[in-house]
């Protein structure tokens, strides 16, 4: 359980994180989504006590991180890949962390195995690929077998095998009842592995919801999409029945105000051939763009939109 309350971080006149409040619950994978520079890493660094909040608090399992008796055994932390001394081997790095908690060699070997680093564990980290560095970060986070994991961009730089590996790992950890909190700027990735999503933009909370709820709320969610040989005739009939339609291609309509069954029945009554018919499911990406579009309206600025577009 991670609780963040009114968390704020200012650097001079810049506010990197602005009054953030959210809770990350156990037993689920919670994604932390936002464009680069939105304040994700800063928030995570404040949670684990590396950066001091300008205001507000962050607790893990009810305690300030700095007050935890055995941090590695309560919270597994993976920060960006540059948190390992390049002159150290993976084994040396993990042993250095393990010794601070009296964790034995056997556990170090175990997490090296879990991360698939056996063949390179005795090589200096400076020569590692980004993917290997990420695996080492995950191994370090798992070292104390903690009930809570905080992972900053763990998917970055992994090959497809690695992506699949970490997705399964996170799922297993959450199903095991652990709290899993990971950041990403890749919406597709979070859509694949997260149960809940905390969305921030420019340091502010934009949403904190179930992935499904968030996606269902998108503007296009629930639209019926129909492809037909006679789009104009069908559109006329549907409009007359009270629905609104929009032609998205010469032979394709998007219909709102009517479900797919009713659209199909209307087509049948008209004798129009239906080539495809279905309900549009929103995507996390759409949900995200909707959210940030609102933020732009409140701010009255185009900058956020530009950030979002750069992100895509």
């Amino acid at each position: 359980m991670i609780e963040v309350t009114d968390l704020t971080k200012r650097y001079g006149s810049t506010t990197a994180v602005n009054g953030l409040t959210f809770t990350v619950s156990p037993g689920a994978v919670t994604g932390f989504l936002g464009p680069n520079g939105a304040g994700k890493s800063t928030t995570m660094r404040m949670i684990v006590g590396l950066a001091r909040p300008s205001a507000g608090t962050a607790t893990v399992n009810g305690h300030r991180y700095a007050d935890l008796r055995a941090p590695l055994q309560e919270v597994g932390v993976m920060l960006d890949g540059r948190s390992v001394h390049p002159g150290r081997t993976a084994y040396g790095h993990l042993m250095g962390l393990a010794r601070t908690h009296g964790i034995g060699r056997a556990r170090v070997r175990q997490v090296i195995g879990l991360a698939g680093l056996e063949s390179v564990a005795r090589r200096r980290v400076g020569g590692y690929s980004l993917g290997m560095t990420q695996r080492l970060g995950v191994a370090a986070a798992l070292l104390g077998d903690p009930p809570t994991l905080i992972l900053d961009e763990p998917v970055n730089g992994l090959d497809p095998d690695g992506v699949l590996w970490i997705r399964n790992l996170l799922r297993t950890l959450a199903d095991d009842g652990r709290t899993v909190f990971l950041s990403s700027h890749l919406m597709a990735e979070l859509a694949e592995c997260a149960d809940r999503v905390v969305v921030i933009g420019r340091g502010r909370l934009l949403a904190d919801d179930d992935l499904a709820t968030l996606v269902a709320r998108t503007a296009r969610s629930g639209l019926v999409r129909v492809r037909t040989t006679e789009a104009d005739r069908l559109a006329g009939s549907l409009t007359a029945a009270g629905a609104s339609t929009r032609a998205v291609a010469a032979d394709t309509l998007e219909v709102s105000g009517m479900d797919a069954g009713a659209v199909g029945a209307a087509a049948a009554a008209l004798g129009v051939a239906v080539l495809e018919l279905g309900t549009v499911a929103g995507t996390l990406e759409e949900a995200y763009l909707d959210l940030t579009a609102d933020a732009v309206e409140y701010g009255g600025q185009q900058r956020a939109r530009a950030t979002v577009q750069a992100e895509r």
Binding site: R69, A70, P71, Q73, T100, H101, G102, I103, G104, R105, A106, R107, V108, Q110, L114, G144, D145, N168, L169, R171, T172, L173, D176
Partner: peptide, 14 residues
């Protein structure tokens, strides 16, 4: 993904 952890200390703490 999660095997029973071995080698954890009998007394936790730093």
């Amino acid at each position: 993904a999660v095997v029973a952890a071995t080698g954890l200390p009998s007394s936790a703490g730093v």
